[in-house]
Design a protein around this nucleic acid. Sequence first.
DNA 1: TTAAAAAAGGATAAAATTGTCCTTTATTAA
DNA 2: TTAATAAAGGACAATTTTATCCTTTTTTAA
Lengths: 145, 145
Amino acid sequence: MMFSKACEYGIRAAVYIALQSLDGRRVSVTEIAEEIDSPIAFTAKILQQLTRNNIVNSVKGPTGGFEIDREEMDNVKLNMIVKAIDGDKIYKGCGLGLKECDAQKPCPLHDKFVDIRTDLSRMLKSTSLFELATGLEIGMTFLKR
Amino acid sequence: MMFSKACEYGIRAAVYIALQSLDGRRVSVTEIAEEIDSPIAFTAKILQQLTRNNIVNSVKGPTGGFEIDREEMDNVKLNMIVKAIDGDKIYKGCGLGLKECDAQKPCPLHDKFVDIRTDLSRMLKSTSLFELATGLEIGMTFLKR
DNA sequence: TTAAAAAAGGATAAAATTGTCCTTTATTAA
DNA sequence: TTAATAAAGGACAATTTTATCCTTTTTTAA
Ligand code: FES
Ligand code: FES
């Protein structure tokens, strides 16, 4: 809706990896896909993107899997994940689909749309993986249903 | 990004129709597609949806075309167009793609996401076609670029 | 050193969205 | 009445997004 499916899976996967990393556990794609209720192979592709963008760390071979350093959980904000997967159209695109969003030649919805978009952007920029993982940890929030 | 292409075209088309209706002019699909820079046949499909949902009025035959009554321009809010074309996932869907968005079993982003979604929803519910058309009329805003 | 485990990557496939084309129906004005 | 005009509708095509499958590379532990 707001994010692509790929991005939704990416965020959920990252939060799950963060949660498990808090316990020092590396997790496999199979486990991740199971826990966030997503298609395995597709999730693997998305994790590759997150890995290339240094959002999560991957280790090959037995005992390998995905992990995130404790300090990185604070540094990684949602906007980084969204940007890595969906690009920056969500931050720059016109709400009515004009080729560019530009206050000099705005669409009829521009002002009102920019307000919302700015709030969304601020929210994503200020929300860290750690913050989301801790809500999960104490059982207040969920990654599937 | 936030709306489907179909919805973007639908809103732009409706605003253009409103603008022309203020001058008492009916407009054809061809003219609309030209003025909002959208694919003709696809736009025609979208206009059918708007017509079926009584958002715009259509008249067949020579001198026919699309129009909106002056009073309807005040009554028709953006949320009605979005709902007619994209359904209500934008109002009800979970930001992280869980099958349902429910405060009883929320995803990690629920609270922050609901804030944004509520603002967006309020904005769409309170913005009328008339309001958008008048900005265009005085040359402050644009439907293509 | 070898077998097994796990991510990376390439090639497709399925589904959804976006877009086109052509025929039918309704209406108007000559 | 008829020719022309314009929306409605159905069938199909292209593109994008989502999803699967299979092979290769890396790494570990026995
Ligand atoms: S021009 Fe449309 S949102 Fe800015
Ligand atoms: S449960 Fe995810 S936004 Fe409400």
